[in-house]
Simulated assay, not measured.
Amino acid sequence: MGLAGCLGDDNGHTITIAGTSSGSASQAAGQALARGANEHSDELTVDVQETEGWTANLYEFDEGEFSTISVDNNSWAAALNEEEDFADEPVDDLPMQGFMFTSLEMHWVAMDGSGIESTADLRDGGYTIYPIEPGFGTRLLTEQLLREDGIWDENDINNEDTDDIPGAVEEGRVDALALYGSNGIELAGWCQEVDVRSDGQLYAIESDDQFVESIESMDGAAHVQQEPYGYEQDVQDELGLDEIDFWALQGQWAFGPDVHPDAVYEAARVAYDHHDTLRESDPTTLEYTPEVMTESIMPDVEVHPGMAEFLREHDAWDDDWTEGEADAE
């Protein structure tokens, strides 16, 4: 499936990224980075492959399938602490930190005819809900949130993958869905497909105080309140909502010790110097600055030495962080 490590020769380095599913934010960001490297680097080639999600990527890394992965901090923390999915199946090897590439903002929509108006209705239960595909980091965080809030056990859970859920929506087999967009700009590709195939039947629902408190109590989630974005239909009109509540999750590129520091440095340089090019491929690309790139850094996890060098050169290194070691210097 993947190329374990970073291939290097006289012409530079190739990194192969575990980029989650087709149409995901990771795929879009990875393909954008690949385009930036192709157009603006003589040293780096980026290849992106499909995987089953951020949580699954940590297992892929542990098994040596990939040395560069997309991953979220919540899944990473669960792996470190042997919690959630990792309680029964822990991993031995974890990557080092690179830089943030997205903030995924999850929210609720319901289908016409469901009768759902708020998260209080979901807590009462009796619905079929889609909390994102198993294996996704967004699913792990959403499942944690719904269990904490009391919604999970009261409803039937649809576990279809993101390629199939638009068909389930079209056939009316789901009442409410957790969908997400990136950086306040655009819905993930599979969520756009849900929007199109719902035939105008989606609408945003209200989050009650208990649900907002549940979001704010979670270490792995950020609470964001804003207008829904990225839809072809007006999802605000049904209930007259100007803004809705999102639970947000940050994703970053992470690298193993066999990825050459020069490759990681060059990936960061391309993103920083040429984010306009990246945005031509992925409209949700961040406005990269060293400060933005480090928003996802966890103080207790090592930073890849190639990234550490980049941050030091841009006066963005924090001495409280720990620099890891690479096999090749």
Rank of each mutant, 00 (worst) to 15 (best):
V303H: 04
T277G: 00
V301S: 07
Y288E: 01
H274W: 11
H304P: 08
H260K: 05
R312T: 11
P305F: 10
E309R: 15
P305G: 00
A308G: 08
R269N: 14
G306R: 10
H260R: 03
T285G: 08
D276T: 08
A316D: 03
E280M: 06
A308D: 11
D318T: 04
Y265E: 14
R312Y: 03
D262G: 00
W317A: 00
Y288D: 02
I297S: 07
D273S: 13
P290V: 04
L311E: 02
H260C: 10
D258M: 09
E291C: 03
V303I: 15
I297G: 06
P299F: 00
E280W: 04
P290M: 11
R312H: 15
H274Y: 15
V270H: 08
P261N: 02
E313M: 01
Y272H: 13
M307C: 06
P299T: 07
P299W: 03
H304M: 04
P299G: 04
V270K: 02
H275D: 14
E291D: 13
T285M: 08
E266Q: 13
A267T: 08
S296F: 09
V270G: 00
W317C: 07
R269C: 02
A263S: 00
D315H: 10
P290K: 05
E266R: 09
S281N: 14
R279S: 13
E287Y: 09
M293F: 07
A316S: 12
A308F: 12
V292M: 11
A263I: 07
D276S: 15
E309W: 02
E313Q: 13
M307K: 13
D262N: 15
D258I: 10
E302N: 12
E280K: 05
V270A: 01
A271Y: 09
D300N: 13
R269V: 10
P305Y: 06
W317L: 08
V264Y: 02
A308E: 14
G306M: 03
S281A: 15
M307N: 11
A263D: 12
E266I: 00
G306N: 03
L278Q: 02
Y288R: 09
T277C: 09
V292F: 03
R279Y: 12
T289S: 11
A263L: 09
V292P: 05
L286N: 12
Y288N: 01
P283I: 01
